[in-house]
Structure formats: C-alpha cells, structure tokens
Nucleic acid binder design. Structure first.
Lengths: 346, 346
DNA sequence: TATTAGCACTCATTCTTTCTGAGTGCTAAT
DNA sequence: ATTAGCACTCAGAAAGAATGAGTGCTAATA
C-alpha cells in the first residue's frame, strides 16, 4: 500500500488534533475540520489504511484513532514544519558563568516553567584538567585545598592534618603541586608521577599521601556528571499517564541522579549534536515507555558537551519543545562564548 | 462531661488502630481487641461521648470513628509512651563534617528511606563569621576568593578583573583582608570599616570595591538558609491524601526552597529545642492541612541550630518518627562534637 | 445504676444492568 | 472514486439492587 499525499494530510490532521485534545480522533472531526472536503466515510476508508500501515490505532472498536509511536515518529520527522516565530524563552538566565551550577539550575527551572514538562540538564562533561591548585592553612590542623579545573569549576577539600605545618611548608607544597599538576587530567596522575613528587617532597612524603587523596577526591567529584532537574511534578499534570503507581515510580527516578545519568548516557548516540526525539518505546529507560524524551546537546567553546532534556507525555507539543530547545541552546552557546572572551584568553 | 480513664483507654485504642489500618474504627473492633472486656454497645456509648468531646468523628453515619486533630494531639501529648527500643537509623552518615552539604543531604536521604515520609533538613543557621580569606590569581584576569566561615563552610567567588595585578599585590590584599575581616560577621562589615580598608589599600582602592562585592555576595550566600529535601515522592504513597490535584501542589512546594524556608521558619516558636509535632490544621502552611509535620532541632557546639522535618499523612507513625528523630539528632550532635574536637580547638 | 443483647436503620461500596452516543465497517447508490 | 445510509460495537455514564459494616436506641439484666 502506498502512503499518498492525501493519506499524509489525513495523518497529519489526526496527529495534530490528538496533540491538541488528547482524545481519539474520529473520522467526522477530520472531515469537518480539514480543507480536504471529503466525507467522513472516505476518511474512514483512508484511516483503515493508515491503521493497517501502523501509523494509528483504535484504543477500542468504537473509538476514534490515536497515533502510534510510528505515527508520532512520522510526524516529527516529516510533517512538523519548523515554526518561524521564535519560541521565546521567558525568564532570564544568569549572565555570569562563574557559577556553572547556578546557571544550569536556572536553565532547568526556566525551561520547566516555559514548557510545563519535566526538565533535566547535565553539566558539560569533559576531561577536566587542573588549572590551579592552592593549599592554605586554615588553622593548625586543617589544610584547605582549592582546586580550579577548566571551565572555572572550583572544588574545595578540607584536609585534616595530624602534623604541624608552617606556612613555609605549605608554600613548598603549593609550588610542588602546581609544577606537577597544572594542566594534568585525572588520568595523567599516575603512579610514576606520584613517586616522583614524593621523592621531591622529601621529609613530608607521608603528608603528601593525605593531600593526594584529598585532591583526587576533589577531581573525581568534579568529573562526575552533575545533573539538575526541575518541574518533576509537571508529570502529574498529564492524566493520560494515569497510573499513579507508575507515575510515582517515574518521579522517584527523577529524584535519583544515578538513574538519570543512565538515562542521559543512553541518549548519547549517532546524532550526538543537535536535537534528538525519543518517542515512547524508543526511550532508553523502562518506566518511561509512556513518555517522550527530547534532548538537545549544547556545546562549550572548549568542546565540552552537555545535554538538556525534556520529559513529557507522548502527546507533547513537539514543535514547541524542539523550538524552545533550539533557542535555548543558542542562548547558552552565546553565554558561554561571551564568558570565554572575557575569561579564558590564556 | 469527664474524660475518665476508660474513655482514655478507648481513645487510645481507636487512635492506635487507626494509625495502623487507616480505616475508620468500629465499636466491635475495640470490644474485641482491647483488654477492657466491654461489649460493643458500651463502647458505642463511650464513643458517642468521645465524639461529643471532639476527639473523634464519623466520616459518615454508618462508619466507624476516625481521630480528629484534637484526638491526635491528645494521643501525641499524653498517650504515646516512649519506645524504649531504640529506633535504629539505618544507613550510615558521613563521619567527616568538612562537607556540611553532603552530610545534610545524606541525613535527608537516610531519614526518608527509614521512615517512608518526605523529609527536609535545613543547614544550621547562625551568624556566620569569617574565619579565613584567601585571594589567589588564577590567571591574568581572574581572581579567586576563597572564604571559609566557621563551621568550615567554604565559599568560592570568582572575581573578574580588568586591571593587571601581580602576585605581590595579591599578597598585600590578602593581608589587608585578613586583618580586617577575620572574625567579622556580615553585620560587622560596615561603611566605616570599608572606608578604613580603602584608605589603607591606597592606589588599589577601586579594585577593592570589586573584591568587596564578591566577598559580600559569598557571605550572603553562606548566610542563606540551605534546605535539602528527600523522599518527596513518598507523599504519593498515602492514598488518603487522595486528591492528586492537592497532593501535586504540595509536591510542587517541595521543589521550591522559598516556600520551604517559610515553612520551617513558621515552626520556630516557643519550644525551640527538641521535637515539635504539628497536626493537620496546626501546620504552618496552607496546602499541608491534611498532613502532619514533625520537626526536630539539632544544635552545633557553636550554638548554631538547624531543623529536621518530616512530612507525612496525619496518620503517621508518630512514635516511630519522634523516636527516629531523637536518635538522629543525638547522632548528629555526636558527629558535630567529634568534628569540633578534631577541628576547631583554636 | 451500669452493662449488654437485640433490633431497626443508615449509607458507602460493590456489582449488575441498562442506556447512550460516538464512532466504526460495509454496502449500495451516485 | 466518493458518499449516504444503516447496522453494529463498545466504553462510559446512570440507575438500581445487594451487601455488610457500623450505628443509635430500647428494654432486659446483673
């Protein structure tokens, strides 16, 4: 059977109507509210074909039709024309990037507010490289390590001492650490390097162990993918995800970063730039089979990438979501670029 | 009418039974499962009295009785004997206090896991005093300010420069800042002090403005009440909070720190130490009228106080919750004390 | 006088049954 | 190829009947 132009028109009408109303769409509706000027009977015949082809289904015999995953997919890939009007993202993003965390939290929040879906944002994930390390003696038994990795992400680590150090010792350590570690990534810090540093540090070799532990912890922590979410409760707004049981399980996942990390990593694939749409079964997480997921990848000037995701019901307003995401990533790119110009011209 | 001993016994039986089952309690149940050896008819008479006195109600004519807020209150205040068995808190807390944030997040999580209710924990709120400040030059245009306030809370602030500074300048600033600001709280930093510092800093007075701004921002941020929540979705587990509409509004509040701050501040009252129980209408927030809130105050050796709260349905297991909270606060006090011994013996 | 057995009554809940109407598929006419 | 028309289906609403947990009241009992 062939998917001729008329069938496409009808399919489009069905999907759009369903997106709007959430009710199964009957032949009569299409007959009346489309410019095809066909009787409901004709539409019915066409619908039967479309059903056979797998684009739509009837929830039960005497009901209208509802798009299948394939139907949505066809719509998203081929029918959904771009909106020319820019979907403005309301709510200001921070302009200063020095607190990445705040910025991303804000992104999640603004996005949730704008779309009324659940959102999540991952921090850009790149091989972090030490830019600057400083130890300072806070008091006699506490040594503070401040580590700045690129992207101006700052980590602190309090190191408890059981030996007395004086300022001069600390100064020595600082120099030592910086000469060795500046520009190093986590992988670069290998046994050999450590040995060498220990050798050079002479009598304080055992303290160095302590310090190292603190530092690796900090770098590790910086390396972890941070995830920020917002608007999780929006999920409750869509009654088609009726089963409270299921929905609350989904919400629970949303509280758990581990799970989310998996989710996001599941989306890293072929088309790793731009926008991806996962519909129903295509979604990489079990509990989400009744939802759709739209992700966008943003990129920092250094090449680091992060993801923004929106989770909503299958009948989500794909057009709006895709558009909003596009604009948001542009805005983000902009902010990062600006940030870079001002900051990192080393 | 008088609340004699028998009535009290009956009331207690009703409340306990209701806490367990969630179903209205009938006279026959009490007659059978209590050691009173009274017929259901007698119980009925007594129940009628208790209803008149406002401790219980019937949801409808032919149903058993359910405790009113007053009924719960009486139970909590007078009937609920302390469990002697310690309600063990399962799941380890971090032992090291240097990352307060992690500790409190953990507390919220463990508590939610143990009780199956929604939990929230506020960071201790005290007048923060600067313990240590350090500026360092990360690169030519970025100055990093690290501020440690007591309790070893660390704040970072990247300060962007449009003037070139060399290491010596930074050193000078460091000395200047530390002599003036060490031990100062936010309120202490007044115009006079600033003037004096500017005078002493001579030619770099205008950079100082920049730095000040950064530092006050950081202190402000440290001053803010941080709130950590966990297990919000547990709320969905209690069907008696049936109205999804309402419940989801409640959940939304749980996403919003502002609201939560209000909530917690609403509980700061007379009995500001130990454990407080708010039942239904007593709760300081509108959407929470169908819930109960139990809060505990923990105290750091410095005298700073924070709150731990548990939100659940009115028929929550008060005994368990109160007990768990008691033990948790003790455990926390312990951790803090240890932390102090090792850390802050200045 | 306090307690209890007994009975009529109430009413949420559950299960059935009936009704309704949106929507279909098919056939015969255009 | 399209459409009018009609019989058919079936979810969901509405209405009715059965169930049973629980009550309040009264009269008998200890």
């Amino acid at each position: 059977m062939e998917l001729d132009e008329r069938k496409v028109k009808i399919l489009k009408a069905i999907v759009m109507n369903y997106l709007e109303t959430g009710e199964p769409v009957g032949s009569r509706t299409i007959s009346k509210y489309s410019d095809l000027n066909l009787s409901s009977a004709t539409i019915r015949n066409e619908m039967a074909d479309l059903e056979e082809m797998g684009y739509i289904v009837q929830p039960h015999t005497s009901a209208g039709r509802v798009p299948t995953d394939a139907g949505y997919r066809f719509y998203v890939d081929r029918l959904m024309e771009e909106k020319e009007e820019v979907e403005e993202v309301k709510g200001t993003l921070l302009e200063r990037v020095d607190r990445m965390e705040l910025l991303l939290k804000q992104v999640a929040k603004v996005l949730a507010y704008n779309t009324n879906y659940a959102t999540l944002v991952t921090a850009p994930n790149y091989k972090k490289t030490v830019k600057f390390i400083q130890l300072s003696l806070v008091d006699s038994s506490n040594l503070l390590a401040v580590i700045v990795v690129d992207g101006n992400i700052i980590k602190n680590q309090m190191i408890r001492l059981n030996v007395l150090l004086d300022t001069e010792d600390v100064l020595k350590f600082n120099i030592l650490l910086n000469t060795f570690l500046q520009g190093a990534s986590l992988e670069d810090i290998n046994l050999e390097m450590i040995q060498e540093m220990k050798k050079q540090s002479g009598e304080y070799a055992d303290i160095l162990d302590h310090i190292f532990q603190g530092i690796t912890e900090a770098i590790h922590e910086a390396q972890e993918i941070d995830i920020y979410t917002s608007g999780a409760t929006n999920i409750l707004k869509y009654p088609e995800l009726g089963d409270i049981q299921k929905t609350s399980e989904l919400l629970e996942k949303f509280e758990d970063k581990e799970e989310l990390t998996q989710l996001i990593e599941g989306t890293i694939g072929e088309d790793d730039s731009g926008i991806q749409v996962f519909i129903g079964e295509e979604t990489p997480v079990q509990n989400m089979k009744d939802c759709s997921l739209v992700t966008a990848t943003y990129q920092m000037p250094e090449g680091a990438k992060g993801k923004i995701g929106i989770i909503g019901p299958k009948r989500m307003d794909y057009k709006k979501v895709v558009n909003t995401l596009k604009n948001l990533t542009i805005e983000l790119d902009d902010i990062f670029k600006k940030g870079r110009e001002v900051t990192n011209d080393e």
